[in-house]
Protein backbone atom coordinates (compact mmCIF):
# COMPACT_ATOMS: atom_id res chain seq x y z
CA UNK A 1 0.00 0.00 0.00
CA UNK A 2 2.85 2.34 0.90
CA UNK A 3 4.49 1.56 -2.43
CA UNK A 4 1.26 2.39 -4.27
CA UNK A 5 1.14 5.74 -2.47
CA UNK A 6 4.76 6.39 -3.36
CA UNK A 7 3.99 5.52 -6.97
CA UNK A 8 1.14 8.05 -6.91
CA UNK A 9 3.50 10.74 -5.62
CA UNK A 10 5.95 10.08 -8.45
CA UNK A 11 3.15 10.14 -11.00
CA UNK A 12 1.68 13.34 -9.59
CA UNK A 13 5.11 14.96 -9.75
CA UNK A 14 5.55 13.97 -13.40
CA UNK A 15 2.06 15.23 -14.23
CA UNK A 16 2.65 18.53 -12.42
CA UNK A 17 6.05 19.14 -14.03
CA UNK A 18 4.69 18.33 -17.49
CA UNK A 19 1.64 20.56 -17.03
CA UNK A 20 3.90 23.39 -15.82
CA UNK A 21 6.35 23.00 -18.71
CA UNK A 22 3.69 22.90 -21.43
CA UNK A 23 1.86 25.87 -19.86
CA UNK A 24 4.88 27.97 -19.02
CA UNK A 25 4.00 31.13 -20.96
CA UNK A 26 3.72 33.15 -17.75
CA UNK A 27 3.23 36.49 -19.55
CA UNK A 28 -0.04 35.10 -20.88
CA UNK A 29 -1.42 34.64 -17.38
CA UNK A 30 -0.30 38.13 -16.38
CA UNK A 31 -1.58 40.00 -19.43
CA UNK A 32 -4.58 37.80 -20.30
CA UNK A 33 -3.18 36.92 -23.70
CA UNK A 34 -2.13 33.70 -25.38
CA UNK A 35 1.22 32.59 -26.79
CA UNK A 36 1.48 33.25 -30.52
CA UNK A 37 4.84 31.67 -31.34
CA UNK A 38 5.73 28.97 -33.83
CA UNK A 39 5.80 26.25 -31.16
CA UNK A 40 2.05 26.11 -31.64
CA UNK A 41 2.70 24.32 -34.92
CA UNK A 42 3.25 21.33 -32.65
CA UNK A 43 0.71 19.47 -30.56
CA UNK A 44 1.11 18.42 -26.96
CA UNK A 45 0.15 14.78 -26.38
CA UNK A 46 -2.46 15.46 -23.67
CA UNK A 47 -5.70 17.45 -23.58
CA UNK A 48 -4.46 21.01 -23.12
CA UNK A 49 -6.48 23.87 -24.59
CA UNK A 50 -4.45 26.08 -26.93
CA UNK A 51 -6.40 29.04 -25.68
CA UNK A 52 -4.98 28.57 -22.21
CA UNK A 53 -2.92 31.74 -21.58
CA UNK A 54 0.11 29.63 -20.68
CA UNK A 55 -0.11 26.99 -23.42
CA UNK A 56 2.97 26.63 -25.59
CA UNK A 57 1.59 23.91 -27.87
CA UNK A 58 -1.65 22.96 -29.57
CA UNK A 59 -4.35 20.66 -28.30
CA UNK A 60 -4.47 17.59 -30.57
CA UNK A 61 -8.28 17.36 -30.42
CA UNK A 62 -8.73 21.05 -31.21
CA UNK A 63 -6.16 20.80 -34.00
CA UNK A 64 -7.83 17.70 -35.43
CA UNK A 65 -11.19 19.49 -35.62
CA UNK A 66 -9.57 22.57 -37.15
CA UNK A 67 -7.97 20.64 -40.00
CA UNK A 68 -10.96 18.36 -40.59
CA UNK A 69 -13.22 21.40 -40.64
CA UNK A 70 -11.05 23.52 -42.88
CA UNK A 71 -12.16 24.09 -46.44
CA UNK A 72 -8.98 22.79 -48.05
CA UNK A 73 -8.47 19.52 -46.19
CA UNK A 74 -10.83 16.68 -45.48
CA UNK A 75 -8.31 14.45 -43.77
CA UNK A 76 -5.85 15.53 -41.10
CA UNK A 77 -2.70 13.58 -41.93
CA UNK A 78 -0.54 15.76 -39.70
CA UNK A 79 -2.63 15.28 -36.56
CA UNK A 80 -3.70 11.70 -37.23
CA UNK A 81 -0.03 10.87 -37.82
CA UNK A 82 0.92 12.56 -34.54
CA UNK A 83 -1.77 10.68 -32.61
CA UNK A 84 -0.75 7.38 -34.23
CA UNK A 85 2.90 7.97 -33.38
CA UNK A 86 2.21 8.82 -29.75
CA UNK A 87 -0.32 6.00 -29.47
CA UNK A 88 2.01 3.41 -31.01
CA UNK A 89 4.82 4.38 -28.63
CA UNK A 90 2.98 4.55 -25.33
CA UNK A 91 -0.83 4.28 -25.70
CA UNK A 92 -2.77 5.68 -22.74
CA UNK A 93 0.38 6.25 -20.72
CA UNK A 94 -0.26 9.84 -21.85
CA UNK A 95 -3.57 9.86 -19.95
CA UNK A 96 -1.90 8.65 -16.78
CA UNK A 97 1.20 10.81 -16.84
CA UNK A 98 1.10 13.66 -19.37
CA UNK A 99 -2.43 15.05 -19.46
CA UNK A 100 -3.04 18.28 -17.51
CA UNK A 101 -6.78 17.68 -17.34
CA UNK A 102 -6.05 14.21 -15.99
CA UNK A 103 -3.95 15.81 -13.29
CA UNK A 104 -6.80 18.16 -12.36
CA UNK A 105 -9.17 15.21 -12.03
CA UNK A 106 -6.62 13.27 -9.97
CA UNK A 107 -6.30 16.19 -7.56
CA UNK A 108 -10.07 16.65 -7.34
CA UNK A 109 -10.49 12.97 -6.49
CA UNK A 110 -8.27 13.47 -3.45
CA UNK A 111 -10.92 15.72 -1.89
CA UNK A 112 -12.68 13.70 0.83
CA UNK A 113 -16.31 12.74 0.16
CA UNK A 114 -18.63 10.54 2.26
CA UNK A 115 -19.08 7.93 -0.46
CA UNK A 116 -16.71 7.51 -3.38
CA UNK A 117 -18.14 5.50 -6.26
CA UNK A 118 -15.90 2.95 -7.98
CA UNK A 119 -18.43 1.07 -10.07
CA UNK A 120 -22.10 1.61 -10.83
CA UNK A 121 -24.72 0.05 -13.01
CA UNK A 122 -24.23 1.18 -16.59
CA UNK A 123 -20.55 2.10 -16.11
CA UNK A 124 -19.34 -0.19 -18.87
CA UNK A 125 -22.01 1.02 -21.28
CA UNK A 126 -21.26 4.65 -20.49
CA UNK A 127 -17.60 4.14 -21.41
CA UNK A 128 -18.68 3.67 -25.03
CA UNK A 129 -19.86 7.29 -24.97
CA UNK A 130 -16.34 8.65 -25.52
CA UNK A 131 -16.06 6.76 -28.83
CA UNK A 132 -19.43 8.17 -29.93
CA UNK A 133 -18.30 11.69 -28.95
CA UNK A 134 -15.08 11.19 -30.93
CA UNK A 135 -16.99 10.06 -33.99
CA UNK A 136 -19.81 12.61 -33.86
CA UNK A 137 -18.38 15.80 -32.31
CA UNK A 138 -14.73 15.56 -33.35
CA UNK A 139 -14.97 13.96 -36.80
CA UNK A 140 -18.43 13.97 -38.42
CA UNK A 141 -19.85 17.35 -37.35
CA UNK A 142 -16.72 19.46 -38.05
CA UNK A 143 -16.23 17.68 -41.38
CA UNK A 144 -19.75 17.81 -42.76
CA UNK A 145 -21.62 20.61 -40.97
CA UNK A 146 -19.82 23.47 -42.63
CA UNK A 147 -20.75 27.14 -43.04
CA UNK A 148 -21.27 28.97 -46.31
CA UNK A 149 -17.52 29.40 -46.77
CA UNK A 150 -16.95 25.65 -46.37
CA UNK A 151 -15.40 25.78 -42.91
CA UNK A 152 -16.57 23.61 -40.03
CA UNK A 153 -16.85 24.36 -36.33
CA UNK A 154 -14.92 22.52 -33.58
CA UNK A 155 -18.11 21.13 -32.05
CA UNK A 156 -16.42 19.20 -29.26
CA UNK A 157 -14.57 22.32 -28.11
CA UNK A 158 -17.65 24.46 -28.52
CA UNK A 159 -20.27 22.29 -26.85
CA UNK A 160 -18.49 19.89 -24.52
CA UNK A 161 -14.82 20.40 -23.63
CA UNK A 162 -14.53 21.41 -19.96
CA UNK A 163 -10.73 21.70 -20.28
CA UNK A 164 -11.16 24.67 -22.61
CA UNK A 165 -13.50 26.37 -20.15
CA UNK A 166 -11.20 25.79 -17.19
CA UNK A 167 -7.84 26.44 -18.84
CA UNK A 168 -8.87 29.09 -21.36
CA UNK A 169 -12.40 30.38 -20.80
CA UNK A 170 -12.26 31.28 -17.12
CA UNK A 171 -8.80 32.97 -16.98
CA UNK A 172 -9.29 34.87 -20.24
CA UNK A 173 -12.78 36.11 -19.37
CA UNK A 174 -11.60 37.19 -15.92
CA UNK A 175 -8.76 39.23 -17.43
CA UNK A 176 -10.43 40.57 -20.59
CA UNK A 177 -13.29 43.07 -20.23
CA UNK A 178 -14.17 42.82 -23.91
CA UNK A 179 -14.70 39.06 -23.55
CA UNK A 180 -16.78 39.67 -20.43
CA UNK A 181 -19.13 41.82 -22.49
CA UNK A 182 -19.83 39.10 -25.06
CA UNK A 183 -20.33 36.00 -22.94
CA UNK A 184 -23.76 34.42 -23.21
CA UNK A 185 -25.66 31.16 -22.95
CA UNK A 186 -22.83 29.05 -24.38
CA UNK A 187 -20.44 30.20 -21.68
CA UNK A 188 -23.00 29.36 -19.00
CA UNK A 189 -23.59 25.96 -20.62
CA UNK A 190 -19.88 25.21 -20.58
CA UNK A 191 -19.54 26.36 -16.99
CA UNK A 192 -22.36 23.96 -16.05
CA UNK A 193 -20.55 21.09 -17.81
CA UNK A 194 -17.31 22.02 -16.04
CA UNK A 195 -19.12 22.16 -12.71
CA UNK A 196 -20.63 18.71 -13.26
CA UNK A 197 -17.24 17.25 -14.22
CA UNK A 198 -15.57 18.83 -11.18
CA UNK A 199 -18.24 17.47 -8.83
CA UNK A 200 -18.17 14.01 -10.43
CA UNK A 201 -14.36 13.95 -10.26
CA UNK A 202 -14.58 14.20 -6.49
CA UNK A 203 -16.75 11.09 -6.19
CA UNK A 204 -15.73 9.09 -9.27
CA UNK A 205 -12.12 8.63 -10.40
CA UNK A 206 -11.53 10.47 -13.70
CA UNK A 207 -15.12 10.59 -15.04
CA UNK A 208 -14.08 12.73 -18.01
CA UNK A 209 -11.39 10.23 -19.06
CA UNK A 210 -13.70 7.26 -18.59
CA UNK A 211 -16.79 8.53 -20.34
CA UNK A 212 -16.14 11.64 -22.44
CA UNK A 213 -12.55 12.22 -23.55
CA UNK A 214 -12.12 11.65 -27.32
CA UNK A 215 -8.33 11.80 -26.94
CA UNK A 216 -8.43 8.94 -24.45
CA UNK A 217 -10.68 7.09 -26.90
CA UNK A 218 -8.05 7.45 -29.63
CA UNK A 219 -5.11 6.42 -27.44
CA UNK A 220 -7.10 3.49 -26.01
CA UNK A 221 -7.15 1.84 -29.45
CA UNK A 222 -3.34 1.72 -29.32
CA UNK A 223 -3.09 0.28 -25.79
CA UNK A 224 -2.96 -3.38 -26.91
CA UNK A 225 -0.42 -2.75 -29.67
CA UNK A 226 1.86 0.00 -28.35
CA UNK A 227 5.56 -0.47 -27.67
CA UNK A 228 4.97 0.35 -24.00
CA UNK A 229 2.88 -2.44 -22.57
CA UNK A 230 1.99 -4.23 -19.38
CA UNK A 231 2.58 -7.91 -18.99
CA UNK A 232 1.39 -10.45 -16.43
CA UNK A 233 3.61 -13.40 -15.69
CA UNK A 234 0.98 -16.14 -15.40
CA UNK A 235 3.43 -18.34 -13.50
CA UNK A 236 3.97 -15.72 -10.83
CA UNK A 237 0.37 -14.48 -10.64
CA UNK A 238 -1.52 -16.04 -7.72
CA UNK A 239 -4.87 -14.54 -8.80
CA UNK A 240 -5.33 -12.77 -5.48
CA UNK A 241 -7.30 -10.02 -7.21
CA UNK A 242 -5.47 -7.17 -5.45
CA UNK A 243 -4.66 -5.51 -8.77
CA UNK A 244 -8.33 -5.42 -9.76
CA UNK A 245 -9.38 -4.19 -6.32
CA UNK A 246 -6.82 -1.41 -6.46
CA UNK A 247 -7.47 -0.34 -10.06
CA UNK A 248 -9.27 3.01 -10.06
CA UNK A 249 -10.15 2.65 -13.74
CA UNK A 250 -12.05 -0.54 -12.92
CA UNK A 251 -10.14 -2.99 -15.08
CA UNK A 252 -8.75 -6.43 -14.29
CA UNK A 253 -5.01 -6.18 -14.99
CA UNK A 254 -4.37 -9.87 -14.23
CA UNK A 255 -6.78 -10.86 -17.02
CA UNK A 256 -6.17 -8.09 -19.54
CA UNK A 257 -3.17 -5.92 -18.64
CA UNK A 258 -3.47 -3.90 -21.85
CA UNK A 259 -7.19 -3.14 -21.61
CA UNK A 260 -8.51 -0.12 -23.50
CA UNK A 261 -9.33 1.64 -20.23
CA UNK A 262 -5.89 1.25 -18.64
CA UNK A 263 -4.20 4.64 -18.19
CA UNK A 264 -0.88 3.04 -17.16
CA UNK A 265 -0.93 4.58 -13.69
CA UNK A 266 1.09 1.65 -12.35
CA UNK A 267 -0.91 1.08 -9.16
CA UNK A 268 -1.45 -2.58 -10.07
CA UNK A 269 2.29 -3.17 -10.44
CA UNK A 270 3.01 -1.68 -7.05
CA UNK A 271 0.24 -3.51 -5.23
CA UNK A 272 0.99 -6.94 -6.74
CA UNK A 273 2.42 -9.12 -3.93
CA UNK A 274 4.37 -11.39 -6.29
CA UNK A 275 5.55 -8.77 -8.75
CA UNK A 276 3.82 -10.61 -11.57
CA UNK A 277 2.85 -7.40 -13.39
CA UNK A 278 5.62 -5.68 -15.27
CA UNK A 279 5.66 -2.91 -17.80
CA UNK A 280 8.01 -1.40 -20.30
CA UNK A 281 9.08 -1.36 -23.88
CA UNK A 282 10.59 -4.79 -23.39
CA UNK A 283 8.76 -6.94 -20.86
CA UNK A 284 11.23 -8.82 -18.77
CA UNK A 285 10.10 -11.53 -16.37
CA UNK A 286 9.80 -10.45 -12.77
CA UNK A 287 12.46 -11.38 -10.20
CA UNK A 288 10.45 -10.28 -7.18
CA UNK A 289 8.83 -13.61 -6.29
CA UNK A 290 11.64 -15.80 -5.07
CA UNK A 291 9.19 -18.50 -3.88
CA UNK A 292 8.08 -19.41 -7.35
CA UNK A 293 10.55 -21.91 -8.76
CA UNK A 294 9.82 -20.97 -12.32
CA UNK A 295 10.52 -17.36 -11.52
CA UNK A 296 13.77 -18.30 -9.81
CA UNK A 297 14.91 -20.12 -12.92
CA UNK A 298 14.06 -17.16 -15.12
CA UNK A 299 15.78 -14.74 -12.80
CA UNK A 300 18.84 -16.90 -12.65
CA UNK A 301 19.15 -16.79 -16.40
CA UNK A 302 19.03 -13.01 -16.57
Amino acid sequence: MAKAKNNNKVRLSVQAVWAAVTNSYVIGFIQGKIYKGSLKNLCVPGLNCYSCPGALGSCPIGALQSVLGSRGFKFAFYIVGFLMLVGAICGRFICGFLCPFGLIQDLLHKIPFPKKIKMFKGDKLLRILKYIILLVFVIILPMFFVDISGNGTPYFCKLICPAGTLEGGIPLVIMDKMLQSIIGFLYTWKLVILGIIIFLSIIIYRPFCKYICPLGAIYSIFNPISFYRYKVDKNACINCGKCSENCKMGIKPNINPNALECIRCGDCKKICPTGAITSGFKNKPSCKNKDVKHEKDKCGKL
Partner: peptide
Protein backbone atom coordinates in the same frame (compact mmCIF):
# COMPACT_ATOMS: atom_id res chain seq x y z
CA UNK B 1 2.78 14.49 -45.83
CA UNK B 2 0.44 16.60 -43.70
CA UNK B 3 3.19 19.09 -42.95
CA UNK B 4 4.13 19.41 -46.64
CA UNK B 5 0.55 20.05 -47.71
CA UNK B 6 0.21 22.82 -45.13
CA UNK B 7 -1.85 21.30 -42.33
CA UNK B 8 0.57 22.60 -39.69
CA UNK B 9 -0.25 26.11 -40.92
CA UNK B 10 -3.94 25.53 -40.26
CA UNK B 11 -3.11 24.30 -36.75
CA UNK B 12 -0.89 27.30 -36.08
CA UNK B 13 -3.45 29.76 -37.41
CA UNK B 14 -6.13 28.31 -35.13
CA UNK B 15 -3.85 28.06 -32.10
CA UNK B 16 -2.36 31.56 -32.12
CA UNK B 17 -5.76 33.22 -32.03
CA UNK B 18 -8.07 32.91 -29.06
CA UNK B 19 -10.45 30.10 -29.95
CA UNK B 20 -13.84 31.56 -29.05
CA UNK B 21 -15.53 28.17 -29.37
CA UNK B 22 -13.03 26.59 -26.99
CA UNK B 23 -13.54 29.17 -24.27
CA UNK B 24 -17.32 29.09 -24.60
CA UNK B 25 -18.08 32.31 -26.46
CA UNK B 26 -18.24 31.78 -30.20
Amino acid sequence: FGFIRGEAGIVLKKAVNICLECIGIG
